[in-house]
């Protein structure tokens, strides 16, 4: 059997107050474990000083985190993976979010959490990087959003038609 080389085990977005804003699990963790992991990690990461390095060793794995305004972006990787690259991936994801929301803030991610997930799913699959071009991701998301918009319009026009017909 070969060792499973999973690049990213999970992605976690935590606010400075310790509220969870987004979680994505690429390795199987039960609901109970997830809660525990989040609690444990927010305890460690939120208390670290600003000048320290962006890596935390944790349960034989490594958590790479970076703070953007009030949000901590965390990704958990194997102990011998390239931490510096993960920092770039985090930044890559943030830039895509930024481009999509237009200078993204925590509130955007709260009220449009599903959008954040869609963007993440265009960036990573199976814990691996999917696309290195921010433009491509933006294009794919925009195309899918358009599909949804069109469907909505169609639905509302049908509702209108029905409403008018049954008046």
């Amino acid at each position: 059997m070969f060792p499973i080389l999973l690049m990213i085990h999970f992605v976690l977005l935590i606010s400075r107050q310790g509220k969870v804003r987004l979680t994505k699990w690429y390795s199987p963790y039960s609901q109970k474990e997830r809660t525990k992991v989040i609690r444990e990690l927010s305890g460690v990461i939120l208390t670290r000083g600003p000048k320290l390095c962006n890596f935390v060793e944790w349960r034989g794995l490594k958590v790479v985190y970076k703070r953007y305004a009030s949000l901590y972006f965390c990704m958990c990787i194997d102990a011998d993976d390239n931490e510096l690259e993960i920092l770039e991936i985090i930044h890559h994801f943030v830039e895509i979010l930024d481009r999509y929301f237009g200078s993204v803030c925590e509130l955007d991610l709260i009220f449009n959490f599903h959008k954040a997930f869609y963007i993440l799913d265009e960036t990573l699959i199976a814990g691996e990087l999917q696309e290195s071009s921010k433009k491509t991701v933006a294009r794919l998301i925009a195309a899918q959003d358009l599909l949804v918009e069109n469907a909505k319009e169609q639905a509302s026009s049908i509702t209108n038609m029905i409403a008018q017909a049954t008046k």
Binding site: K24, W25, P28, Y29, S30, H114, F117, Y118, D121, Q144, L147, V148, A151, K152
Partner: peptide
Amino acid sequence: GFPEKRIGYLGLMLLLDER
């Protein structure tokens, strides 16, 4: 429809896991 599928798959990935 695509919108239903999109949210459905998102929910699937979020609420369920492989086990």
